[in-house]
Design a protein around this nucleic acid. Structure first.
Lengths: 253, 253
DNA sequence: CTTGCGCTTGCCGCCGCGTCAACTCCTACG
DNA sequence: CGTAGGAGTTGACGCGGCGGCAAGCGCAAG
């Protein structure tokens, strides 16, 4: 009992193109090839195809399927790993969907309010995300922490983010007042303010003493951060950095 | 104020290769190009890049991003459609993960029982899914119904599937008894049995008269189905088909 | 002899880049 | 003055899983 490629295609539901592809990559060769060059399949191949399709339904890659079928891998182990990947991807999409949902809601709200000239205007669209610019450097220097931070940020609503931005600005202003008043960075009031800053940062990632000092230095070095601090008060970036350094030395090590 | 490609890469966190790619596909062209061929970007480009990255975070395709930014599409509509796709894909993965989880449990159970020679033996692996073979024809002829059926099947546990297989077999045996006894297919007892069959099929998809007759014909034509019926009793496939045809004519039209 | 079917091989396209390779231009250093 | 090195360029292939098209072959019916 032999079937042509079209027979197998009809019986299995895949296209003949797919069967040729599986032959090409060595996943499923026909039982034999006729003198006319046609592929002929027998029951053994149908059985193998069936298993291929089952694992394909589970979204396993063709490579992994081949490994399992050729007994190069433990099916349970492969499935367990695959299961883990599926859950991770599902969670990612879930988070993503919620983020997109919030973005939609936000855009619609603005449309209703009508106080913005138009949602397609670039400078109005996604206005709340301005802070993301500061994250670029971090993404490069500490990719893992950046990733954790990003995931956390995704769970925030636009209002949360706006509120946090205002908090940050308020903190900067209070630090500027200390600076202008000539308060030394080791002063308990200043250190308490730094502590608030550290707590805020820790919502995204938890730096150790060295990392926190590095962050302080970045406020001075990085043009983006620096200009943000300079806009509040001249010299604030250095003051903030020194205060953070003192905090790191006394409280984090 | 102009930035080189590496500057922009550092600031934004993407690679220079990506920026060249965006230029290539017309998503983000540099502000101008130096006499040395180098790309130079200005604030307008940074702003556009920022929006690109935001939408990319939302997993939008570059094509769609371009359409939104060039005001060829309504952002809210695009996001809404995207949201729908995300949810659908998430649900698919969720179902899939559960299916894979059950498969793992099933495989492990068999390992514990130890009455099978080895789980990697093809004829034992995924045994519960044997019925899927019969679905191939349906997938081709009625793709939509097949899809619905597949989704339904995925919600079943392995035990459910086994039970349904036993039910099917029992039905076939009862039909074979009628056939051997010479009962005409129009006999109420036979028709009642066919009704049970129709109800069973309807859990997957609800065929109209023509489709149900087509299914009956398939039992005769398709070698897979035919051999299944022939294994129970010679001529059963035709008897079943005739009974189904009578049922379709009297009850479904 | 033509027509048509069923099959073959071969290659491009998708999507978002990563990763070479080979080259040019500019600057710094000996 | 040459030369090394760094930053940039274009061009090409690769990834996964096929879809789809083109060109061609063998075989049977009209």
């Amino acid at each position: 009992m032999a079937w042509s490629i079209a027979d197998v295609a009809r019986m299995s539901g895949v296209t003949s193109r797919t069967l040729r592809h599986y032959d090409e990559i060595g996943l499923l060769a026909p039982a034999w090839i006729g003198s006319n060059g046609h592929r002929y399949y027998e029951e053994g191949q149908l059985l193998r195809l069936q298993q291929i399709l089952l694992m394909r339904e589970l979204d396993l890659g063709l490579r992994e399927i081949a490994a399992v079928l050729d007994s190069q891998a433990d099916p349970v182990a492969v499935l367990r790993e695959h299961h883990r990947r599926l859950l991770a991807e599902r969670d990612r999409l879930d988070t993503l969907a919620r983020t997109v949902g919030r973005t939609i809601a936000e855009l619609e709200e603005r449309k209703d309010e009508g106080d913005m000239a138009g949602i397609t205007r670039p400078e109005n669209l996604f206005e709340g995300f301005d802070a993301s610019r500061y994250e670029a450097e971090a993404r490069e220097r500490w990719p893992q922490e950046y990733e954790r931070s990003r995931r956390f940020t995704e769970t925030l609503t636009a209002e949360d983010q706006e509120r946090m931005q205002r908090e940050t600005t308020a903190q900067m202003i209070r630090m500027a007042e200390f600076m202008v008043a000539g308060t030394p960075v080791s002063d308990p009031a200043v250190q308490s303010e730094v502590d608030a800053h550290y707590q805020g940062v820790s919502r995204f990632w938890t730096p150790n003493a060295a990392a926190y000092k590095g962050l302080g230095q970045m406020y001075v070095t990085d043009p983006q951060f620096r200009s943000a601090y300079d806009r509040v008060a001249a010299g604030l970036a250095e003051y903030q950095r020194d205060a953070m350094t003192a905090y790191a030395d006394t409280r984090l090590s």
